[in-house]
Design a protein around this nucleic acid. Sequence first.
DNA 1: CTATGACCTGC
DNA 2: CAGGTCATA
Length: 311
Amino acid sequence: MPLVSAPTLSWAELPHYSFEYPSPLLNLRWTLGCGQAFRWRETAEGWWVGVVRGCVLRVRSQGDTVEYAAYPHLPDPGFWPDYLRLDFDLEAMYSELGALDPHARASFESWPGLRLLRQDPTETITSFLCTTANSIPRIARAIEGMSVAWGEPIATIDDRSYHGFPTAEVFTEEIIPTLERDCNLGYRAYNLVRAMEQIAAKPPGWANSLRAMPYAEARAELMSVRSIGPKIADCVSLFALDKDEAVPVDTHVRQIALELYLPEITQKSLTTNVYNRIASRFREMFGERAGWAQEYLFFSHLMRHRDTPVL
DNA sequence: CTATGACCTGC
DNA sequence: CAGGTCATA
């Protein structure tokens, strides 16, 4: 790794820019901290700092103004509207889905401005392979460790070094011990490498091509990779592939569904059958934007049973 | 088709 | 037990 090529800088010396967006329709803390992305952290001054597609970014909201800086530059000129999916009509979603269900409506009112992101498919796959039976802080530390170990150094800014996300080719058998121990991934290390080897062997651009497929096809492609089950496939579909009808069913969503919508489910465990019944129920209720309803209800539940340090 | 256990750590 | 998955019974 050519560490010398990464410069030392301070945020203050970097140019800052801004754009306007109504604050009730964009809440950075909830959007970047809700567990769909793992490389953002909040500073004491209220900046969110992260690395996306090889660029270091910092961003914050002041009223309806969104300020940001980027090094060496934005991933592309239209980055923010793309990454934050600012073209998605959140207000319409609130009124249309809110009218269908009082619980959804309440979650929209509690967490206005929570948005789903459009993240990099390969990074999202890699990240969510680390989430199995794991907690958000530990996932974030593992991903940070992987980036420091195998990601391209970008810069040191205000005494913090930033690295790109490791490419799929990095994940070979030799690094399993490092993943297990240094990155603290435990048994997930083996699953991660096994999956990434399979992905690296796919035709170039495989992960990005999933976005152009219908949801069912993309999901099946993802699940053809060993260690990617229904939950991870749906997380990738929803957080990276624009598949708004994807409904990741985790323990939180399962509890919500059994409590509010499907009391007749008696199975103790989350079988494939139960998983599909819950996800289908969300789609019956909320249609092609079921994943948004899922995210709001999930986040409400997570905050009620506060097991995350984010907020 | 369902249920159970194993898999690494730590809060 | 945690924002699961796979193998086995």
